[in-house]
Simulated scan of single mutants.
Amino acid sequence: MAAHGSKKVIYAALAGNTLISITKFVAASITGSSAMLSEGIHSLVDTGNQGLLLYGMRKSARPADKKHPFGYGAELYFWAFVVALLIFAVGAGLSIYEGISKVLEPHPVSDPTINFVVLGAALCFEGWAWFVALNEFRTTKGKMGWIEAVSQSKDPTVFTVLFEDSAAMLGLIVAAIGIAISHFFHIPWMDGAASIVIGIILACTAFLLAYETKGLLIGEAASDEMELEIRSIVSAHPAVTMVNELRTLHRGPSEILVTLSLDFENSMPVSKLEAVIADLEDHIRDRFPPIRRLFIEAQSHKDHLDIAKQMDEQA
């Protein structure tokens, strides 16, 4: 996904959550609703999260330097992981704490009208932000299923916002149900119970985000389709006799590192070998612009197997 698409999703969520968090806190202070307070905390955390994602995108765009020769692309993955931790520690933790306090010491919610008005407005804002994120995610999903698309995605900004907004809408529904039961059926502790459920929703969201971003932080390969096509490009060259090894690594959503070990024709002079490698690099980079670093090693297939065997024995 292009960077401008990711930023559009984040800006939409940032604008919506900023307005929503203010109105939720005002409503919570007027009515004393624990569920509404949890929703305010939720929206405030989401607002901060979008700021962190934008910061991560800016920092990851820095050019490579001597200390970081492969660039800063992976910094976006770090900040996405921090977002998951914040959702769990702040959003889920405070919501569950507030809910337990309300269940242990329940008190009735005053006129809930303002709560329902705020929740309805929030649902509209969150729905709009969710729809923007969903449309952006669909552009990269292709024919893959939703779970597979999230698992294969290398851009955490979009699926993070999509998860956050999905959790937000579920939280709004839970808050509305809890407040309604608390007020109309005179069961004040249900307001606190709704806050606990909101916290559990946030905890589950944080776990999913942490799981996905952990894989990106550790390092994930490019798609199978890309690797197959790179192999096809290289194997089709008449000077290449064997593809010994192909390794790919995403350093960012649109920043890929590729290493190739190739067995070339033995009779080829060095000057021609250099020209062949340059030609292969041009073909691969033209086909896949996100490949920012490409290293091609000339190595006989036998030597490659011997080294691989030695590495296995040392492991």
Results as ranks from 00 to 15, higher is better:
Glu164Val: 06
Thr139Ser: 15
Ile173Met: 11
Val158Phe: 11
Asp165His: 15
Glu136Gly: 01
Glu148Tyr: 00
Thr113Leu: 12
Phe137Gly: 04
Gly171Ala: 11
Ile177Lys: 02
Ile181Met: 09
Val109Ile: 10
Val103Tyr: 00
Ser166Asp: 01
Ala175Ile: 05
Ala122Lys: 07
Ile114Leu: 14
Ala149Lys: 05
Gly120Asn: 11
Glu148Phe: 02
Met169His: 10
Ile181Phe: 15
Glu136Phe: 05
Met169Ser: 10
Val158Arg: 01
Cys124Ile: 15
Ala129Val: 11
Gly145Glu: 02
Ile179Arg: 07
Pro108Asn: 05
Glu164Ser: 01
Ser182Gln: 02
Pro112Leu: 12
Phe131Gln: 09
Thr157Trp: 10
Glu148Arg: 14
Val117Glu: 05
Val132Asn: 06
Ala175Gly: 11
Phe116Asn: 00
Cys124Ala: 15
Phe159Ser: 00
Ala121Trp: 13
Ser166Glu: 12
Arg138Pro: 08
Trp146Met: 05
His183Thr: 15
Lys143Glu: 10
Arg138Glu: 09
Pro108Leu: 09
Asn115Cys: 14
Glu164Lys: 11
Phe131Lys: 09
Lys143Ile: 09
Ser153Gln: 02
His107Thr: 14
Glu126Val: 15
Ala176Glu: 04
Ala167Pro: 11
Ala167Thr: 12
Gly127Asn: 00
Trp146Phe: 13
Thr160Ser: 13
Thr113His: 12
Ile179Lys: 08
Lys143Gln: 14
Gly145Asn: 12
Glu136Ile: 12
Trp146Gly: 11
Phe116Thr: 07
Asp155Ser: 08
Asn115Asp: 04
Trp146Pro: 07
Asn135Met: 15
Val158Met: 00
Pro108Asp: 11
Val150Lys: 05
Gly171Gln: 10
His183Asp: 07
Ala180Asn: 10
Glu164Gly: 06
Ala168Ile: 01
Asn115Lys: 01
Glu164Leu: 10
Pro112Gln: 04
Val109Trp: 03
Val174Gly: 07
Val118Ser: 07
Ala168Ser: 11
Trp146Ala: 02
Ser151Cys: 09
Cys124Asn: 14
Gly120Ile: 06
Asp155Trp: 01
